[in-house]
Design a binder for these strands. Structure first.
Lengths: 201, 201
DNA sequence: CCTACCGATCGGTAGG
DNA sequence: CCTACCGATCGGTAGG
């Protein structure tokens, strides 16, 4: 057990950036120390272990996702409206906390137990927020989707791949991406079935 | 440089499975050797380096994706029909070559240069197949999408997350998933603005 | 394909 | 927070 403080914040933030760039196992504690002009061993005055740092990063990201999305899922709005808001919120977290969110999505499975199992539960609870809204939308006749689980997985898969290509200084803003994604997901890529030729498989 | 042979095949296949399960950096060459009842150093009679094994796995996966999808992109069919076929083919590769495909998608960035840069080029060329079909579909009035690049990224993001949850012995077959994904992607999650809720697929 | 080994590096600790 | 160090393990090689 080790004190928390400003120095520890720096260590976790630096680790988050390096883990995002290189991956957890390709980053050494001495890489982190070097960024802060410290000796490798000196980190351990502030942290318990490399795994504990990963745990903290992942926990922070999970909290950010829940804080942004959980309430929206329960608003008294049409399911499509809620889903749109949740998509914007989720993308907002990924893009505004890019380091933590990327590490969460990319390296959570390297957590030691029981931290790993705990994160698995959180992930499922988070996905359930989307699944639930989709199910409600189906019940209300707003969505045509057959399988809300498959739909929530596909939707989140699309959003969670953002770290692989989003560039904070790129041409596409988070809001633009969110609006386009929501549009494509809700209305599909193709023209409406009644409007044209295309038949199915 | 080292001979190829049946033993080498076993080594690459075993590495592919372990890399998929644990990740490249969390797998040691001795883990691979142990699975084959060999000593760690003995692997090097058959392989050049751990990186070379990763390169081979990734190259095989890339070839499988191109072999399955490239021709479909150029067929003289409506864009929506081609896209549907490409989705099925891509998911077919992911699910039937799960080890290689997963390692490709998850660990390609750990390749040493110039292998890594080469794979980046291949990935873009592959994505371009989808981008191109989407662009043609837009030009033909089949698709309403505004940005074919964004659409191709979202689409492939959904398909490429499959290794994270697909279970070969699970209830959902590859064909079922492909059909549902294609449906959701092409027609969207929500009710059509023009049609009423029941549209056949 | 094994035995035996290499230098390098890993995460982490003792003791100041 | 540093110096100095720990045992363990890493990918890889020499020489049979």
């Amino acid at each position: 057990m080790v004190a928390s403080g400003a120095r520890k914040e720096q260590i976790v933030a630096t680790a988050s950036e390096l883990f995002r760039q290189r991956g957890y196992h390709a980053t050494t504690v001495r890489d982190i120390a070097r960024e802060l002009d410290l000796q490798g061993g000196s980190l351990y005055a502030h942290i318990d272990s490399k795994d504990a740092v990963l745990r903290e990063i992942v926990a922070r990201a999970a909290e950010a996702f829940f804080a942004a999305v959980e309430q929206l899922a329960g608003e008294p709005w049409p399911a499509a409206t809620r889903l749109r808001a949740m998509i914007h919120a989720h993308i907002g977290v990924v893009t505004s906390r890019l380091n933590d969110a990327t590490v969460f999505l990319q390296d959570w499975r390297y957590l030691e137990e029981p931290g790993r199992a705990e994160i698995l539960r959180l992930r499922d609870a988070y996905e359930a927020l989307f699944r639930q809204v989709l199910a409600e939308g189906i019940a209300a006749g707003e969505f045509t989707v057959r399988d809300p689980r498959l739909a929530s997985i596909m939707l989140l898969s699309g959003l969670n791949a953002l770290p692989g290509w989003f560039r904070p200084d790129g041409a596409l803003s988070a809001d633009h991406i969110a609006a386009e994604y929501a549009e494509m997901l809700l209305h599909g890529l193709s023209v409406r079935p009644l409007a044209d030729e295309e038949d199915d498989r």
